[in-house]
Design a binder for these strands. Structure first.
Lengths: 191, 191
DNA sequence: CCCTGGGCTGCAACTAGTTGCATATGCGCC
DNA sequence: GGCGCATATGCAACTAGTTGCAGCCCAGGG
């Protein structure tokens, strides 16, 4: 149940409509807690019902009506309570590792292609996060308070994507060696 | 939907009962795809119904009856099909990062304690995985085929836990500096 | 005037995972 | 004989996330 709290802290930083929240999740919040607009709207509704947030309608200027949400005192108290609650790391699940575990039943070139794609996706995330880092935190050593916290969150995201990139790269290299070794062995056996 | 395939590849390696599967998940499979025994039993039932696995009962010796499952040809075909299906990295979700993002609303010492606990949990995983690596793959450079794949899966788990350990350590150090800087500033302000 | 696309809200039905719990067999010990 | 624990199986009800879809407002361009 961290989506509620991710939304609460995001609204605490700046009241927003559901649509704006979805946009903020796509740009930054979603880098540490991903959520779709359907989840966000449903969760906003539920939090309205239990009075963790309140909303008011804002007429757009040349735009449709917007419902802007903000955190109530109860919502803030709930977030503070949750901060002090002991959490556990989530169970680990990595679909591509399941594929790798069962690689011998499939086609090496296909799995190499899959890992190459994932490696490139992660490389893209690394690059995007690094640009974000350069833009928002050019001098990390000088950071304090909230900006330090935000920087540390981004740093975690960067390290995670870098690790996944490096691992996929290691796997691609190893499987390619296996493929060329097997092909050589097959050629030698056939020759 | 990778649990089905994690179970299929695990049974392909060695037919097992639900209870044995749960044990194997606790020891190794669960390091890349975590699952509880309730999930495993339910998924075994469903895969029996769609004939991806079949089961037969085996009387225990001084033990209760066991239902041993094995993969059918259809189940094997489904796994191979799934191997060639393009997957996407899962959306990223890290509860403790949400807490860090909202750290300014809470107590720094409490958050430091939380990150310290997580760091130590990850350190424990690193140590356990390293022992597993030493025991099962003392000479990684010589590996080929299935054993190479299994090793690469474990390597990914190790790198992931190491990254989480390093990140939590970085956060603890930064928050402790902040705490002591704030305390010094508070003391100076009060003095 | 109509169409398209962006802005904006939101629901139903589903899957995947979790929590809580139940039941039975068998063995060893008190 | 009963208790506790390990072995072994499995369900119901719930939460969290996903998929698929629906609908409305507004502006701009053809």
């Amino acid at each position: 149940m961290a989506l509620e709290h991710a939304i609460l802290i995001t609204l605490e930083e700046r009241p927003s409509s559901g649509y704006e929240l979805a946009r903020r999740f796509d740009r930054s919040v979603g880098h540490f807690w991903a959520a779709t607009h359907q989840q966000i709207y449903r969760t906003l509704k539920r939090m309205s019902e239990i009075r963790w947030v309140t909303s008011h309608e804002v007429p757009g200027e040349g735009r449709p009506l917007r419902k802007v949400y903000e955190v109530t005192d109860e919502g803030r108290d709930e977030f503070v309570r949750w901060l002090s609650e002991n959490g556990e790391p989530a169970p680990y699940r990595q679909e591509i590792a399941v594929k790798l575990r069962g690689a011998s039943l499939g086609s090496l070139p296909t799995l190499i292609a899959e890992f190459t794609r994932h490696r490139d996706l992660h490389a893209g995330w690394v690059a995007a996060f690094r640009r974000m880092e350069q833009r928002d935190f050019p001098d990390p050593a000088s950071l304090t308070g909230r900006r330090l916290h935000h920087y540390l969150v981004l740093s975690g995201g960067i390290q995670s994507e870098e690790m996944l990139f490096a691992w996929c790269d290691q796997v691609v290299a190893a499987l390619e060696r296996e493929l060329s070794g097997t092909s050589s062995q097959s050629a030698a056996a056939a020759g």
